[in-house]
């Protein structure tokens, strides 16, 4: 399918030429993992584990390597991760991340997905800052016939969320999804604003289940780790949504994030249309990385 086709390549070409498992092969693997944005540290530790396993199992056939790599990465990605249950009603989902990663688009896709499960959904336009951010969310709302709670541009985003929570309670909406303005994680005041939004949700809708999705762009390199760390300081991130996997970037940084911060990936974005959102599957992702 769409994702697989574009994620593939790279390692396949690398592994083709080898007749035995030797240091050269491990070096090529390191290169491929780094080129997938896995990061130096994570790459080293993955390849180290691979070396040990090859030794332990007396493996000599290079064609076994891909499977072992996929095992290794799948283990990191799924270690300790509960298979996500269907969200309970009512739930409030807060969507956060740096500028331009795909938050609003992902919300449009999620909303449509939940609605097709037969749930009632409300959207909160709490990006009151970026030009036409509210209009953009409204277009997505219209696409699946979902109401958007909004205020004027430049109004207080926490106030929008406050309104939206009350609207959701009054209408007995199953789900409320809150869009937020893109913000770089090193901007203290904007991060505090996010903390405040989280508090409003907690205070005004104590009985609702809460999800906080951090949206990451697969094109992003090592900085995504820093993003995850700093967003985690102001919000209880429950999952990552990795967008733009329909490009040529591999999004390998989520492996580093999972291994360092234990944040699981929940969905992947594979295009700009309403159906281009898929549940994340660790094994598929790991296999696709290496063209299995």
């Amino acid at each position: 399918d769409k994702t697989r086709k574009n994620i593939m390549g790279g390692v396949d070409a690398v592994l083709g030429g080898f007749t035995q498992i030797d240091e050269d092969l491990f070096e090529e693997l390191e290169e491929a993992l780094i080129m997938a944005d896995m990061g130096v540290q994570t790459t080293m530790s993955i390849v180290e584990n691979l070396r040990k396993r090859v030794k332990r199992e007396h493996a000599t056939d290079p064609s076994l390597i891909k499977g072992m790599l996929a095992d290794e990465i799948t283990t990191i990605l799924s270690d300790g991760v509960q298979e996500e249950e269907s969200l309970p009603n009512p739930s409030v989902i807060l969507v956060i991340g740096v500028n331009g990663v795909g938050k609003t688009t992902t919300i449009g896709k999620l909303a449509s997905r939940y609605k097709s499960e037969g749930r009632t959904v409300l959207l909160a336009a709490a990006d009151t800052f970026r030009a036409a951010a509210i209009d953009q969310l409204e277009v997505w709302g219209q696409r699946s016939g979902i109401e958007v709670i909004k205020q004027e541009e430049n109004s207080d985003p926490a106030a929008v969320v406050f309104d939206a929570v009350h609207a959701a309670k009054n209408q007995k909406s199953d789900l409320l999804i809150c869009d937020t303005a893109g913000r770089l994680h090193n901007k203290k005041n904007l991060m505090e604003e996010l903390r405040k939004i989280g508090k409003v949700i907690e205070r005004e809708h104590p009985n609702a289940h809460k999800e906080v999705y951090l949206v990451l762009d697969a094109t992003t390199g090592q900085n995504a780790l820093q993003q995850a760390k700093l967003f985690q300081e102001v919000a209880d991130i429950t999952g990552i949504i990795l967008t733009k996997l329909d490009g040529t970037a591999k999004g390998g940084i989520v492996v580093a994030i999972k291994s360092e911060l234990q944040i699981p990936v929940r969905y992947i974005g594979v295009g700009e249309s309403i159906n281009d959102l898929q549940k994340f599957d660790a094994r598929e992702f790991a296999k696709a990385l290496f063209g299995e």
Partner: peptide, 11 residues
């Protein structure tokens, strides 16, 4: 985007 990783060369 300045945050782009290894794929910057491809793009």
């Amino acid at each position: 985007d300045a945050m782009t990783g290894q794929d910057a060369v491809t793009v």
